[in-house]
Design a protein around this nucleic acid. Structure first.
Length: 896
RNA sequence: GGACGUUUAGCUCAGUUGGUUCAGAGCGUUCGCCUCACACGCGAAAGGUCGUAGGUUCAAGUCCUACAACGUCCACCA
């Protein structure tokens, strides 16, 4: 143990430690009436997923919250799991099938679903294996999957409940249809691609007149399904036409000319053809104005038998060409402009999406949204950063019904059953459907029922996640204890898909919000600010990074550079921050342990010391600093300011503890030969250090555990992750501003002398003399009491400390908190450098003084500013003047 | 087009309610050090008119207005 490596080696520590934690059940949470639960459910990653930088930040945060609360004495439970990810997973397996030369249609539904399950068993857990590398303390015994039996039950239950309440309905709706995949896609599964197209201007004759109205369209083939022409009601040009009829060219149907606000008079001709069955905007217009919907294509985007025979069976683009030719012949095509616009493409196969009117299942969202909106507005649920509340409000007040059916095979099958007469029975399973049939006294039997072919949107299972993981609708003890959860950590881009819907589901089915705090993580970008993506290849593999720098380094770095609500520019090099810090922690521990072990060789019993009871200034100071660190870090964590917490700890451990405190400890250890005193000193330092390790543990679990084990030679499986976190309530009283002021003076003196050394080019190998001419007894005493530390740290020879000590000749000088410091230079310096140095300091202070004087000479300032502010300025004036005077005198002497 | 966010040192960012020597940190750069925990380290230095223009105030990096640049989300207009 005394032979600890000079550098911390994460590779030797991490896997071993993780296995030890996991096999000892340290991550496991169970119902404990004596403790308050603290629950987090993981945003379940896709089973097709592999770890990327976004996961790193997200899961590190969840782990930090969980470990922090666990050490604060909560029953901290972090539930992991994965999402079945309907389309993504079906895609992956389909691809594999294609390689084998087969397709899902060949296989048939049942076999295909079996194949997906097989795939899931083999590869679906990859991401969880990867997450372990990060050190996450999830309760793996509670791992769930959105297609588990329990979760499937929840999905069915919810479907039935909502259906019975009239909140789920089947209806025609315009959806994003992929003609190739033969499925509806959600909006987020459609990639808008900027494309060069055309805008065609087409004449529609006004009924019973020789007049025409010209409409502009990018999709002329849909005119066969037009059921109106719309203009803006305020558009003077068309005012007279409103209420009249137009004739659809080619189809020769009569359609009304209507007025609707959505029409932009400045675009095109200001007149729009309306095709409710083939355009989302037109669909909305059609609903508003009660227009008929004419479907003119089949599901493969070929023209159907509603259109004139000439075009039947043509592909939409062939039809477009034909139609344009015909319009031209009829001289109905006025002109053709180039036009750039966004066209939706299928994210899987890149086929152009066809807005298509089809039978789908929907959830009525308005009744669910209202209480969910209120929960956020009244503060029951808080968002971090707060500004996402506005985004949420906007969406919730403009919510549209949710299309939940997907034409896929992998997913929760819609629990609706059809009878030969077309009627629908919604039930949790076929048996229940049969029962319902019987209850109705229907002529049909269970065998006549045929289940809906569609599956449900993946989010339809994820929105239940916070309670379905506890086997709701069963009222399990776990559900009672661990629900609602405390924090949700997620990315802001799924605020609508997931966060909002979970809130709705929680309130609807549990009558209680699913979580109280929502922490939205930063978006990780590459060093030049680009979004990380697979296609750009700019996303580093976190496992490589962990292998190179260590998991702690990655975790710490990501937290260090990721403030709340701001994007993060990430680069692998930045992990040096975390790696170096881990190494610093390691070496501080190594140093202290070396001393301790040296002292215990005599095998005497260790003197019990009270770490809070020391006469030594630096001891009192570090205790005070430690106590404020506890307070500030705790406050930061309470407010979800993780980034602040991390920076405070970095600052404390590195600057206060290592750079100052340990340096003083070194000297004190050297200064005395009293073993008991030595022991007291080192034990005190170790106590502070160990408490600091606890504070650091949630952020850097591995290195802190490793040192913790070495620190105490623990025999009985004691882990730092189950220790009690230092608490503000216990440490707050030890914050001592007076001690911190005293120490600050000492530090300033040391820095001043170092500055002289550095600028005068006096190497540490050369001892120097030191004269302190004080004008305050208290400051003199501080220097006296720490004489040996000054001597050691500054490599001093003769020291003279007193009140109004005469200035030595030829000395560099500095004024520190009103006290004069001289370093006699015995001719080994260039007086020019010292002159410049002093002059520069005088200039700086005179600048400050001018600022102060400007205020004090300003009547309105003196009349209007608060008295204490004026007092402060006067004090400043005095300090500046006195210091400048001293510096000037020194400067003159130097010249003389 | 709508909503929101960002703009402070070469780079990445802190700066909480206007007033503490408030203009800061880290990285990078420069200089000096292998000082018996750590060169993944120690000590020191240089570097900024706080996006622009107004306004409020005794006092503005901080509050207000407009503008500019960049970014995110939503609607993405036939």
């Amino acid at each position: 143990m005394s032979e600890l490596a000079k550098q911390y080696n994460p590779a030797e520590v991490e896997d071993k430690t993780y296995q030890w934690w996991e096999s000892n059940g340290f991550f496991h949470a169970s119902i404990n009436p004596d403790k308050t639960p603290h629950t987090i459910v993981i945003p379940p990653p896709n089973i097709t997923g592999i770890l990327h930088m976004g996961h790193i930040l997200n899961n590190t945060l969840q782990d930090v919250f969980t470990r922090w609360k666990r050490m604060q004495g909560f029953e901290a439970c972090w539930i992991p799991g994965t999402d079945h990810a309907g389309i993504a997973t079906q895609n992956v397996v389909e691809k594999a099938l294609r390689k084998e030369g087969t397709t899902l249609r060949d296989l048939g539904r049942e076999k295909f679903v079996e194949r997906v399950w097989e795939w899931r068993t083999l590869y679906g857990g990859t991401i969880n294996t990867q997450l372990r590398k990060l050190g996450v303390s999830c309760d793996w015994e509670r791992e769930r999957f959105t297609m588990d039996e329990g979760l499937s039950n929840a999905v069915k239950e919810v479907f039935v409940q909502l259906y019975d309440k009239g909140l789920i309905y089947k209806g025609k709706y315009i959806v994003n249809w992929c003609p190739r995949e033969q499925t509806a896609l959600s909006d987020d599964e459609v990639n808008p691609v900027e494309s060069k197209g055309h805008l065609w201007y087409i004449k529609y004759q006004i009924e019973k007149s020789e007049e025409y109205i010209v409409v502009a369209t990018t999709r002329p083939e849909t005119l066969l399904g037009d059921t109106a022409v719309a203009v803006n009601p305020k558009d003077e040009r068309y005012k007279d036409l409103i209420g009249k009829n137009a004739i659809v060219p080619i189809a020769n149907r009569v359609i009304p000319i209507v007025a609707d606000d959505f029409v932009d008079p400045t675009f095109g001709t200001g007149a729009v053809k309306v095709t409710p069955a083939h355009d989302p905007n037109d669909y909305q217009t059609g609903i508003r104005l009660n227009l008929p919907q004419m479907i003119v294509m089949d599901t493969s985007a070929k023209m159907n038998n509603i259109v004139p025979p000439k075009y039947q069976g043509l592909d939409r683009y062939e039809c477009r060409r034909e139609l344009l030719r015909d319009l031209e012949k009829l001289q109905l095509l006025v002109k053709t402009d180039d036009h750039v616009h966004n066209v939706g493409h299928c994210y899987r196969c890149d086929t152009v999406i066809e807005p298509y009117l089809s039978d789908q299942w929907f959830v009525k969202m308005k009744p669910l949204a209202e209480p969910a909106l209120k929960a956020v507005q009244d503060g029951t649920i808080k968002f971090y950063p707060d500004r996402f509340t506005k985004t949420y409000e906007h969406w919730m007040t403009n919510i549209r019904d949710w299309c939940i059916s997907r034409q896929l095979w992998w997913g929760h099958r819609v629990p609706a059953y059809y009878l030969p007469d077309g009627s629908i029975i919604v039930a949790r399973n076929i048996h229940e459907a049969g029962e319902k049939l019987k209850a109705k006294g229907s002529q049909y039997k269970k065998e006549d029922l045929k289940q809906d072919d569609d599956v449900l949107d993946t989010w339809f299972s994820s929105w239940l996640w916070p309670f379905s993981v506890h086997d709701w609708p069963k009222e399990t003890d776990d559900l009672k204890y661990f629900y609602p959860t405390d924090v949700l950590v997620t990315a802001p881009d799924i605020i609508f898909f997931w966060v909002a819907r979970m809130i709705m589901a929680g309130l609807e089915f549990k009558g209680e919000v699913p979580f109280r705090h929502v922490y939205f993580t930063s978006l990780i970008r590459d060093a030049s600010g680009r979004k990380m993506s697979k296609s750009l290849g700019n996303s580093p593999d976190p496992l490589d990074v962990i292998a190179t720098y260590g998991a702690d380094a990655l975790r710490f770095t990501v937290l260090f550079i990721a403030p709340v609500g701001q994007d993060v520019l990430y680069d692998n090099d930045k992990c040096e921050i975390g790696r170096n810090f881990a190494n610093k922690i390691w070496n501080a521990g190594r140093f202290l342990m070396m001393h301790r072990d040296f002292l215990t060789v005599d095998n005497e019993q260790l003197t019990i010391i009270n770490p809070n009871n020391s006469e030594d200034l630096t001891d009192q100071w570090i205790i005070s600093r430690f106590s404020s660190t506890v307070k500030e870090v705790t406050a930061a964590m309470d407010n979800f300011r993780v980034n602040d917490a991390v920076k405070l700890l970095y600052e404390f451990l590195w600057k206060d503890f290592c750079d100052w405190y340990v340096e003083f400890v070194k000297n004190r250890m050297q200064e005395t030969s009293d073993v008991h005193l030595k022991r007291a000193i080192i034990t005190r330092a170790l106590t502070i250090y160990e408490e600091t390790l606890k504070l650091l543990h949630p952020f850097m679990p591995f290195v802190t555990e490793e040192i913790f084990q070495h620190l105490s030679d623990r025999k009985n499986n004691e882990t730092i992750m189950r220790c009690t976190m230092p608490q503000t309530a216990q440490t707050e009283s030890r914050i001592n501003p007076d001690i911190e002021k005293q120490m600050e003076f000492l530090q300033n003196v040391i820095t001043a002398v170092r500055q002289i050394r550095s600028e005068m080019n006096i190497p540490m190998s050369k001892a120097i003399d030191f004269v302190a001419s004080c004008n305050e007894f208290e400051k003199q005493a501080i220097l006296e009491n720490n004489k040996s530390a000054l001597q050691k740290l500054l490599r001093l020879d003769i020291m003279t400390i007193g009140i109004a000590v005469p200035k030595p000749g030829y000395a560099a000088s500095s004024v520190v908190n009103g006290q004069e410091i001289f370093i006699p230079l015995k001719g080994l310096i260039d007086t020019g450098i010292e002159r410049d140095r002093l002059q520069k300091e005088i200039d700086r202070l005179e600048g400050q003084l001018r600022g102060v004087m400007a205020k004090l000479n300003n009547d309105s300032f003196v009349n209007k500013a608060a008295a204490e502010i004026i007092e402060k300025e006067k004090n400043k004036q005095q300090n500046f003047e006195q210091t400048i005077q001293k510096l000037k005198t020194n400067l003159e002497q130097l010249v003389g």
